[in-house]
Simulated assay, not measured.
Amino acid sequence: MDAFPLLIAAGLLAGAMNAAAGGGSFVSIPAMVFVGLPSVAANASSTVALLPGTLASAWAWRRDFRALEGTSPRVMAAISLAGGLVGATLLLTTPERAFDALLPWLLLTGTLAFAFGRQLGTALRRRVRIGPGTVLAAQVILSIYAGYFGGGVGIMMMAVWSLLGEADIKAMSAARTLLVSAANAVAALCFALAGPMRWPETAALAAGAVVGGYVGAVVARRIPGPWLRGFVILFGAAMTFVFFRRAWG
Rank of each mutant, 00 (worst) to 15 (best):
N184A: 14
P226V: 11
P224M: 05
F235T: 06
V232N: 08
A220P: 06
A167D: 13
A167M: 15
P196N: 00
A187L: 02
F231M: 12
G208D: 11
L178C: 10
L178W: 08
V180M: 06
L163R: 02
A175F: 03
A206G: 12
R229S: 08
A159C: 00
G212Y: 03
A247I: 06
E201V: 07
R229A: 10
R198A: 15
E166C: 01
L178G: 11
A185S: 13
G236H: 04
T240R: 01
V160M: 12
G154N: 00
G212F: 06
V180K: 02
D168M: 00
F235E: 01
M158A: 09
A187P: 02
Y214R: 14
M158K: 11
G195W: 03
S173F: 05
A175H: 00
T202K: 10
L228G: 01
M157K: 12
A209M: 07
V160D: 03
V219Y: 00
V186P: 02
G230T: 02
I155Y: 09
L193P: 07
L179W: 07
W227Q: 15
T202C: 13
A167V: 14
G154I: 07
A238P: 05
A217G: 15
A203I: 15
G225Y: 09
A206L: 12
M158Q: 11
M156F: 13
L205W: 00
W199R: 08
A167H: 12
G195F: 04
A237P: 04
M197V: 01
F191L: 08
E166R: 10
F231R: 07
A185L: 13
V210A: 13
P196F: 02
K170R: 14
T177Q: 07
R222M: 13
Y214K: 15
G225R: 14
T202M: 14
W199S: 07
V215E: 11
G216T: 01
W248Y: 15
R221V: 01
A175G: 01
A194Y: 14
L178H: 02
I155S: 05
A192R: 11
W248M: 14
G165M: 06
V210Y: 13
E201T: 11
G195P: 05
L234D: 03
C190G: 15
I223W: 03
K170T: 08
P226K: 08
M239H: 09
Y214L: 14
R176Q: 13
C190D: 15
M156C: 08
I223Y: 00
A174K: 01
V219N: 00
D168I: 00
V215L: 15
T240E: 04
A175C: 01
A185C: 04
V242C: 13
A185W: 10
G195I: 09
M158Y: 03
F243V: 02
S173P: 02
G212H: 01
C190L: 14
G165S: 07
T202F: 10
V242T: 15
A188I: 09
F191W: 07
T202P: 09
A237D: 01
